[in-house]
Amino acid sequence: MLQDYTIKKQPTKTSKLIASIEFILVLLAIQGVLLLFNQEVPTSEVAQFRILANSNTAEDQRIKQEVQKKIAPLLDQAISQSTTQQQLHDRLQHLEPTIEQLAGEYANGSAVTFEHKAALIPPKRIGFAIQQQDVYDAYILKIGKGKGDNWWCALFPKVCYPEEATVTETEEEPVKFFVWEWIKSWFS
């Protein structure tokens, strides 16, 4: 009777090639599924709303969240009752004193302004769709100095502060992609 023993196979270049091709096909399949669910956001007609906190302190960010909770119903009502951009703009102009008063109650004496202007809005995800970065018609509620960063400002300072980013810019290392470097290492 023969004893049971394991057969060990050494990975070959062919098996590495097949594994990398399978990996690439899986990535392409995932990309295809994401494209199926991709919805186009009608960006030319979308009004953007932003609330800028006084600073990045925990207290200022908490105030920003409280203000957002209080004015969200007013904005939702104005949006639902408007059928055109002009109607929305008129309703928001009418609500401006109310919005500033509500925000002022939480602002601890800081100045509050509500502006309507063209503003650079970074990309963001809305459902399965991604809104492109662009200059949009925006309504901006600024509490105090309005220096509170949003998450994209920490990750992409050139988007939020292009002047400051060019001053402090140093020589950067070339960008390397882990997956591509890993695949290249198989064939070296």
Rank of each mutant, 00 (worst) to 15 (best):
L25N: 06
F128P: 11
E164V: 00
V112T: 01
Q10A: 02
E22S: 12
D90H: 11
F23C: 02
H89N: 15
E22L: 10
A72L: 14
Q68W: 00
F37M: 03
Q93L: 02
G148I: 09
W151I: 12
T98K: 15
T113E: 10
L34Y: 08
S44C: 10
P162V: 05
T14V: 10
Q61D: 04
F114L: 10
P73K: 06
I24W: 01
I51Q: 03
A103R: 08
I143T: 03
A118Q: 15
G32R: 14
D4L: 12
E66T: 06
I79R: 07
L102Q: 12
A118M: 15
S185W: 11
A72P: 00
E164M: 06
T14F: 09
Y5V: 02
E163F: 14
P123Q: 09
E45Y: 13
L88A: 07
T168D: 12
I99A: 08
Q39R: 12
E163N: 15
Q131Y: 10
Y5F: 07
L102I: 05
I21N: 03
L35T: 03
A119W: 12
A72I: 01
L102W: 06
T14P: 00
N38R: 13
T84L: 09
M1S: 12
Q48W: 12
S15G: 01
E105L: 13
E115W: 01
P42Y: 04
F156N: 11
F49Y: 08
A53R: 12
A47R: 15
A138C: 10
